[in-house]
Design a protein around this nucleic acid. Structure first.
Lengths: 342, 342
DNA sequence: CTGAAAGCGCTAACAC
DNA sequence: GTGTTAGCGCTTTCAG
């Protein structure tokens, strides 16, 4: 393996001079620089970032912890993060937790060991605990999409779930729906709590009594297709089933569609369906689902910018900053007035 | 920052003993181990992977270079890679090149500097050149989805594009189509070349003359939605336009749909459309596009397994291995016999 | 403008 | 079982 030493020997200079050339320091005579560059080229020398990081205590790496890249929402977030990181010369390590608290802790540990300069984190557990090793090492952190209670010194970038859920529910109510089911992930996830709140707020505003049996919460934390499928079936198996369903996120909505179809019902004739979060590749080709859309890419960009600013200490600000992004209601074809008014 | 030294001091042992505990070596007395563990806990010590890597010359990190995580095909590949990597305790660094040769080179350089143990690579340029620093450092490499000519010592995991394109084209021919347009990315990309080959093979088999004007190749290398849109328009603007279009990949097919609709035509009544690669979130909800599906997740898994085996030198094999995965034809609703038989 | 010495946090190899 | 020494590849002083 060729090292800085080999380059120095070949170029007939000290390693310090080579180091200066590599790092583009100005105080090197032009002909020395050229000699060094030539040696680097001939030897095929590639600097070792780890040796460098060990000394300077920076890695130019950030960790991105999300539940699943396969979820279109998170892939867009990830893209925003990566695009932004690269402009600032940061590399990103991607971690999928599948909303599994153990994976969550494991990845945090891996990131801490790798001394990433910062972490962008989507919490599944809603607990601060898994983040322990980051706090100990004082690694800058920004939460994305989901908050965690009682965290200081941590920025949060998220969509306004309360508002989004309110808009979606209101839309349904205005169409005439009174029995609206909602399916969400576990209460440990802030978006689940917020979306239920927005839902309830809309109902209250229209003086519709809240029927807790219409609120289906997945105890196993996930906002997955399978959970959407299962919870929708539970809703439709009720004696007095809802006339509309609110899918807590895009995957749950897909699960709901599958469940509804399997029961031989049609959307929106028999039942209306709305979803939090869009699926772009779907809606482009088949603009069917009525959704509330979040600026996922922008979320990734902002989170990364805030993070890097913290890393570079360009922020004197010490307190927690919370960026709340507005969701956008997109009405398509999956909603219609209910068949029978109740 | 707490180091192994601090732990050693606190536990009243040498740093070597702490190192042994951290690495789970057996030759440490039980009570010493406990003392050390207690000190680690109290101090909140997290081992520094870089210092370790510097000595052992392994990073337990692999690089994954793809064109775009946002493309459902690659997100699934990425998921397969990550899931497999983690079971072997490898971390993955994700790189999106957008099929841009400069980004490609840049990322390879970053990965080489970070001394990743191996790289899984999707080539956009089709050239070996960007991989130079990997070869110099003898970093194990496996190509995924797309091959590069004239590379030894490199495994390739890819779908059988020739077969897939053949199946798709044959399906169209059997429906009665004679003028079939095809849109693909640049010829520097092996899948573009292969898909054209499969297309031609099917035409020849049915004695249909090949009309080169029906073969639209994007010179700017990308297999993107925008390119699909543009090339489709070009095809449909012809004097004697095709009755069916073969989208070179999923994104191009989406672009094609958009272009076709914009011209006021319907699929499959006015024009048939097929696509290489599925979009799962779309087809689940709206099983419309006739496609050839590739086992993306499996590709990621196999590529990672091959790579890690090389990294761990469990393979005595030195020659290039090529894994060719079978595609699967899924006939849905976007294809029908042509209106006018030509 | 250039170089020599020290050390980042850890492990390999060898003592004891 | 446990500790000592050397050194991984680089940058940070500080001399010259």
């Amino acid at each position: 393996m060729v090292t800085i030493k080999d380059v120095a020997k070949k170029a007939g200079v000290s390693i310090m001079t080579v180091s200066r050339v590599i790092n583009g320091k100005s105080n090197v005579r032009e002909d020395t620089r050229e000699k060094v560059l030539k040696a680097i080229e001939e030897l095929g020398y590639v600097p070792n970032s780890m040796a460098r990081s060990l000394v300077i205590k920076k890695t130019a790496t950030i960790g991105l912890v999300i539940s699943d890249v396969t979820n279109p929402f998170f892939t867009t977030v990830a893209r925003g993060v990566e695009d932004t990181a690269i402009t600032k010369h940061f590399t990103v390590i991607l971690c999928n937790t599948d909303e599994n608290p153990e994976k969550e802790s494991m990845y945090v540990e891996v990131l801490a060991r790798n001394r990433v300069d910062g972490v962008i984190f989507t919490s599944a557990s809603g607990k601060k605990n898994p983040l322990k090793s980051l706090f100990i090492k004082k690694i800058p952190l920004v939460l994305i999409d989901r908050t965690i209670e009682g965290l200081e010194d941590v920025d949060v970038v998220r969509g306004d779930s309360v508002l989004g859920a309110y808009l979606l529910t209101k839309h349904l109510i205005e169409l005439g729906h009174r029995r609206i089911g909602i399916i969400v992930g576990s209460k440990t996830i802030s978006t689940a709590v917020d979306r239920i709140e927005g839902y309830k707020r809309a109902l209250k505003e229209f003086d519709i009594p809240i029927d807790e049996s219409l609120i289906k919460i997945n105890d196993k934390s996930k906002f997955s297709k399978e959970d959407g499928y299962r919870l929708t079936k539970e809703l439709l198996d009720m004696e007095n089933p809802p006339t509309a369903i609110f899918g807590g996120n895009n995957l749950m909505a897909v699960g709901a569609i599958l469940a509804i179809r399997e029961l031989g019902l049609s959307i929106p004739e028999d039942i209306s369906l709305v979803s939090f979060d869009d699926i772009e590749s779907l809606s482009e080709v088949y603009p069917f689902l009525t959704v509330v859309k979040q600026p996922a890419y922008t979320m990734g960009v902002i989170a990364t910018e805030l993070l890097i600013r913290r890393i570079e200490r360009k922020d004197r600000i010490k307190e927690k900053r919370e960026i709340l992004l507005k969701p956008e209601l997109v009405i398509r074809k999956s909603t219609a007035p209910p068949k029978i008014k109740n």
